[in-house]
């Protein structure tokens, strides 16, 4: 008995030729799905990277603004507007970082945000009798340290989420 399958043979109502065409299509669709999933993954990674970079940039600007703010006493005419600006930008940063956390569960940054918030806007922030601080004052070092911790947690979250 011959085991060869005739090209015109019938299998489930289809010829072998039809089956080969169908398999070809299945491979094409599967390939497209895999490639699409990979492209989506790359796009999400790129978006998250851009957001992490934007948060780090905002954070660096906030540290610089905090240094300028605490470098001058409350009596400085620009003190109030600088304080408001810092408060607003701190809120923007927290909102962006928390959005990242909501989108990607691997980011765990709320605690670090709180520490940063306390270091920047805790006492003597917006106090009427605030004195100018030296460049190496403990408070300024604490702000930089809290910023550093948040940057590390953003980077760690990115690595956990995207490898």
């Amino acid at each position: 008995m011959s085991t060869a399958v005739s090209p015109d043979g019938i299998l489930f109502g289809l010829t072998v030729k039809d089956l080969l065409i169908a398999v070809g299509w299945l491979f094409t669709i599967f390939g497209w799905l895999v490639s699409n999933a990979q492209a989506n993954g790359r796009e999400k990674r790129k978006e998250a990277r851009a957001e992490v970079d934007a948060c780090i940039k905002l954070l660096a600007e906030l540290v610089t603004k905090s240094r300028d703010y605490y470098g001058e006493a409350a009596a400085n005419p620009q003190s109030k507007s600088r304080g408001s600006e810092i408060r607003f930008e701190l809120q923007r940063l927290i909102a962006r970082v928390e959005r990242l956390e909501r989108k990607h569960a691997q980011f765990d940054v709320t605690g670090a945000c709180g520490e940063l918030m306390d270091s920047i806007s805790g006492d003597p922030f917006e106090s009427a009798d605030r004195q100018a601080l030296a460049a190496d004052a403990d408070l300024l070092l604490r702000i930089e340290s809290a910023a550093h911790v948040l940057i590390e947690q953003l980077e760690d979250g990115f690595i956990k989420a995207f490898g």
Binding site: S84, F88, L90, Q91, I120, S121, G122, D123, P124, F125
Partner: peptide, 10 residues
């Protein structure tokens, strides 16, 4: 609100 400082909230 346009942001809160820790000193205010505390």
């Amino acid at each position: 609100a346009l942001g809160f400082g820790s000193s205010f909230l505390e």
